[in-house]
Amino acid sequence: MDIRPRTPADLPACVEALAAVQAADRYPVNWPADPGAWLTPDGMTTAWIATEPDAAPGQAVLGHVAITRDLELTRLFVTPAARGRGVAARLLETARASTPLPLKLEVSSEGRAAIGLYERLGWRRVGSSRATWLNAAGEPALLHHYVSP
């Protein structure tokens, strides 16, 4: 698999990949009115995608991650078909290598697989809080806050 910076031509394939993730996992919990904008949050500085080797811009995306200017890792996902291949770990490694400073992230307590991955890779939970958005049960989501190793 290849990891490379996301280009504008990749956005439709990223939205398609996100739709597969949302159908399987309800991430994001509520489908955004503009998924391309959701994948490009305010303050985003860089986003990377995972693709099959030598895939052209706009071809199938296996996974995605972004970083904001306040060093928050966000919009990390891997398509159901690509899971178990180390895609998320490679995306996290790429994001971490982009800055010498620690990264932070938030993950819903419902994201048990993601939490397991972060903790296996050495991310440290530094707190928890309630979100302003509702989880699948219709309650304010419990967010766990992590810092990179």
Score class of each variant (00 low, 15 high):
P102G: 08
A141E: 09
V78Y: 03
L73N: 07
T51P: 05
V78Q: 05
A13Y: 01
A60K: 06
R75P: 12
R130A: 13
A81F: 07
I3E: 09
E119Y: 00
G63L: 07
Y146K: 00
L18R: 03
M44P: 00
L92I: 13
P100C: 07
D2T: 15
T94M: 09
A95N: 04
R120E: 11
W48R: 01
L121C: 05
L11V: 15
G86V: 06
S129Q: 14
V126C: 13
R6C: 15
S129C: 12
A97P: 10
P80T: 15
D70S: 12
L91H: 01
R130S: 12
V87M: 09
E119V: 12
L143E: 08
G116E: 10
G36R: 01
S128R: 10
D2K: 11
C14S: 14
D70N: 14
T68W: 04
D42V: 07
E110W: 03
L117Y: 08
L134A: 12
Q59H: 13
D10K: 01
L143G: 03
L105G: 05
R124I: 10
S109K: 12
A81W: 10
T51H: 05
T46P: 00
R75V: 12
D70E: 11
Y118Q: 05
L62Q: 14
L117F: 04
A136K: 11
E110N: 08
P149W: 01
T45H: 00
G111C: 11
A55I: 05
Q22G: 06
A66W: 02
T46F: 04
T7R: 14
A113Q: 11
D25F: 06
W48G: 04
N30K: 13
V21S: 01
A136I: 14
G116L: 09
S108M: 04
K104W: 10
E139D: 14
L105F: 06
D2M: 13
V29T: 15
P80M: 10
L73Q: 07
A13L: 09
L121Y: 02
G36P: 00
L91K: 04
